[in-house]
Design a protein around this nucleic acid. Structure first.
Lengths: 193, 193
DNA sequence: GTCTATACGCTGATAGAC
DNA sequence: GTCTATCAGCGTATAGAC
């Protein structure tokens, strides 16, 4: 049996990740976390001595999560278009979580204020995602599922940027516009056949 | 003749706007501005009593700037494709300014931490830009310059989001990738003829 | 592991002299 | 308009008791 308060570390990560996606890295503090969790400020420093330790841990966990997602048995069975759709759904989850931004976008906009270790982890995270998406587009185009001009990496950046940007734009307009934008992006790469 | 230090207000706005695009709204303080300008903290409060007054002023100035840009005599002469290209160049300027984000993206990612007056001004700014881009796409498609499926507004969101997102993504990758991404976006709406 | 207590610079902001 | 002086609160962070 697992005691309810067994893994405070995990709870801190969960709360901090949500705060990060909602408010940005410079928009939340240890106080937000401690009051949400019902513990004291100092207790969080026991698990994450510095705020950047917490930041790095959040990104590393997101990287592992993305790796498991993209390498899951379920995912391997899918064809390229289904994989792309799964990526769209992955992004749409941020919207349903009360209009959050995606991790990459949040970290990039405050990139210059981040300590070096967080900057490096951010770069690795983006590289992971961009690599996966590039490979998917390359493979999918070879197999006739996708049709787009130019370099798969350029197209990968456009898709990542679009979704990331759209999650942000709808915060200042209407959340319902995200879906329509996502469909529009999908059309630009899906082959007509 | 205009004394060198005549309009401190304007200099504050210039510096603060650059800090905002570099570091995010919660990433810069009055101290950054005062030390950059060689004056005291309190002097800035004379011009902008609250930080949100400064924030609102930055957005309002950007809105006026965009209005003048989009209504300029020079712009009226351009055809739809040339207007779209001008919009791309407008975004590329942030990249050349040392890898800045665009104003919309910065404000949206910390949207939930902003005071109400700044949130409203942000919404108006996005609405201005989205309205202009939507009208351009609608008109351009009617005249045969553009070819894309669906609602012009959906396409407008995709283009705005892509450029906004791309400016952010290249911060964690390579600035040179922006140009390629921009060309890729351009291809998705330019008619083939 | 979590607590209390504490440090201390930075933050936005004000009062009042010049 | 800009200055000096000052403020209360918050930020991250540490020491040491339980």
């Amino acid at each position: 049996m697992i005691p309810a308060k067994a893994d405070t570390r995990r709870q801190i990560l969960d709360i901090a990740e949500n705060l990060l996606l909602d408010l940005g890295y410079n928009g939340f503090s240890y106080k937000h976390i401690s009051s949400a969790l019902g513990i004291r400020n100092a207790s969080i420093h026991y698990h994450f001595p510095q705020k950047s330790d917490l930041g790095v841990a959040i990104i590393q966990r997101a990287r592992r999560r993305f790796w498991r997602w993209s390498h899951s048995e379920e995912m391997q069975k899918r064809n390229p278009l289904e994989k792309l759709d799964a990526f769209f759904i992955l992004n749409k989850k941020f919207l349903h979580a009360g209009g959050q931004c995606c991790l990459g976008g949040v970290l990039e906009t405050c990139f210059k204020t981040l300590p070096t270790d967080m900057q490096m982890e951010t770069q690795a995270f983006i590289s992971d995602m961009l690599g996966w998406l590039t490979e998917l587009l390359r493979d999918g185009r070879e197999r006739g599922a996708f049709a787009f001009p130019g370099d798969p990496q350029d197209q990968a950046i456009v898709i990542m940027s679009s979704l990331q940007g759209a999650l942000q734009v709808v915060r200042a307009t209407d959340p319902s516009l995200f879906e329509a934008a996502a469909r529009q992006i999908r059309k630009t790469v899906k082959s007509e056949k």
